[in-house]
Simulated assay, not measured.
Amino acid sequence: MRKRLSMFKGKSVAFTSIVLSAMLALSACGSSGTPAGEAQTPSPAATDGGKKQEVSEVRVGYIPDLNGAPPIVLGEEKGFFKEEGVKVTPVKFLSGPPEFQAMAAGDLDIAYIGPGATFLAAQGKGTILMPMSFSLSDMVLATKKSGITDWKDLKGKTVGVPKGTSGEMILNLGLEKGGLKPSDVNIVNMDVAGAVTSFVANKVDAVAIWSPYTAEIEKQVGKDNMIKLGDNKTFYPDYVFPASWVVNPKFLKEKPEAVEKFLRAWIKANDYKLQNVDETIKLTANYTQVPEDSLREQRTGIEWMESKKIAEALQDGTANKWYENLEKLFVATEKMTEIVPADKFVAPQPFLNASK
């Protein structure tokens, strides 16, 4: 990776000697040796017109996959952040809930989240700026040894799942489909690393996770030794699962101009990504150290949205309906007590302003 991009990488620690070690990393500090919570003095940057503008610093949470990383990678590599007067400090996470914790602590400004963490935004812990894609790759897998072949067979079994994620959402929908309640199953909260290794070692009967970790399981145990119970498509069209970008409400209130600068750069990166998929995969692989093959497998499980379509969904209220429909699931699984109107936690105007 070019020198300027490598400066922005968070530190990562391999957790096993297999390929999975290249795919997963511990949450890390900000880049360039700057702690995520430590601000720097903004410096002037040249605009295309040769004028000086103040550089806005934004601490951004990303997940090292083909959904969460490309805006950071392309924004830096293609100079989109520099063009818009934004200095991004990226911070690596493996799921959404820890990002909200970091925002609550004042250590994070903007972050990418999967659909499973949407309930935390609905609870007021973050403000959704926009949806950016639909997840198609969350699934529940059972070991062949477990004897599970149907959702109803999960009763009394042990299932590993990173709680508060889209994997848990698919699991809960599957349990309902099988006439079961979460209390009918021994659900164990695990990070993605633990879920994969536990499945491979037959320490759990099933797991609820997503690509590329599902592909890693298949590589290690073989397709014949795993049973796919269902995925996102199993519950379509009743449920769609939008991944989103969220902002710390305090940061949005205090620095709306910085948010719009970031979004203008984000839109450029998103449009570039859609037109240059192969290059995006290569650059993202270098940045995240996730093998290109794994990222290409992820691509089949993601439905990306054009920036224009995102703006339309925000403007006509379609996006709000997506989120409120997800809330029904959160209420049913007791993550929320009631459905909160989406306009209470979705702020479309910054993206609409940036897209003009």
Score class of each variant (00 low, 15 high):
residue 97 P to F: 04
residue 97 P to V: 01
residue 97 P to Y: 06
residue 99 E to P: 00
residue 99 E to Q: 15
residue 99 E to R: 06
residue 99 E to K: 11
residue 99 E to F: 03
residue 100 F to N: 11
residue 100 F to C: 07
residue 101 Q to F: 09
residue 102 A to Q: 03
residue 102 A to K: 12
residue 104 A to T: 08
residue 105 A to W: 09
residue 105 A to F: 04
residue 106 G to K: 07
residue 106 G to P: 04
residue 107 D to R: 03
residue 107 D to Y: 09
residue 108 L to V: 05
residue 108 L to Q: 02
residue 109 D to N: 13
residue 110 I to L: 10
residue 111 A to K: 03
residue 111 A to W: 05
residue 112 Y to K: 07
residue 112 Y to P: 00
residue 112 Y to C: 01
residue 112 Y to D: 07
residue 112 Y to G: 03
residue 112 Y to I: 07
residue 112 Y to Q: 12
residue 113 I to V: 13
residue 113 I to K: 06
residue 113 I to Y: 03
residue 114 G to D: 13
residue 115 P to Y: 10
residue 116 G to C: 06
residue 117 A to L: 01
residue 117 A to N: 09
residue 117 A to I: 05
residue 118 T to V: 13
residue 118 T to C: 12
residue 118 T to D: 03
residue 119 F to K: 02
residue 120 L to G: 02
residue 120 L to S: 11
residue 121 A to T: 13
residue 123 Q to G: 14
residue 123 Q to C: 13
residue 123 Q to T: 11
residue 123 Q to P: 12
residue 123 Q to M: 14
residue 125 K to Q: 15
residue 127 T to C: 05
residue 127 T to W: 11
residue 128 I to S: 02
residue 129 L to Y: 15
residue 129 L to G: 11
residue 129 L to H: 15
residue 131 P to K: 02
residue 131 P to H: 08
residue 131 P to Y: 07
residue 132 M to R: 13
residue 132 M to K: 07
residue 132 M to F: 07
residue 132 M to H: 15
residue 132 M to P: 01
residue 133 S to K: 02
residue 134 F to I: 03
residue 134 F to E: 06
residue 134 F to S: 04
residue 135 S to T: 12
residue 136 L to H: 15
residue 136 L to S: 13
residue 137 S to H: 00
residue 137 S to M: 00
residue 138 D to I: 03
residue 138 D to V: 03
residue 138 D to F: 14
residue 139 M to R: 07
residue 139 M to F: 06
residue 140 V to Y: 14
residue 141 L to C: 09
residue 141 L to P: 00
residue 141 L to H: 02
residue 142 A to V: 04
residue 142 A to T: 12
residue 142 A to N: 01
residue 143 T to Q: 03
residue 143 T to C: 05
residue 143 T to G: 15
residue 143 T to K: 07
residue 143 T to P: 00
residue 144 K to A: 10
residue 144 K to D: 02
residue 144 K to F: 07
residue 145 K to Q: 12
residue 145 K to S: 06
residue 146 S to K: 03
residue 147 G to Y: 06
residue 147 G to N: 03
residue 147 G to H: 06
residue 147 G to C: 07
residue 147 G to V: 02
residue 148 I to Q: 01
residue 148 I to F: 14
residue 149 T to H: 14
residue 150 D to E: 12
residue 150 D to W: 01
residue 151 W to E: 00
residue 151 W to V: 01
residue 152 K to M: 11
residue 152 K to W: 07
residue 153 D to V: 04
residue 154 L to Y: 05
residue 154 L to E: 04
residue 154 L to D: 09
residue 155 K to D: 01
residue 157 K to V: 06
residue 157 K to N: 04
residue 158 T to F: 08
residue 158 T to V: 10
residue 159 V to Y: 07
residue 160 G to I: 02
residue 160 G to E: 00
residue 161 V to W: 08
residue 161 V to Q: 01
residue 162 P to G: 09
residue 163 K to F: 15
residue 163 K to M: 10
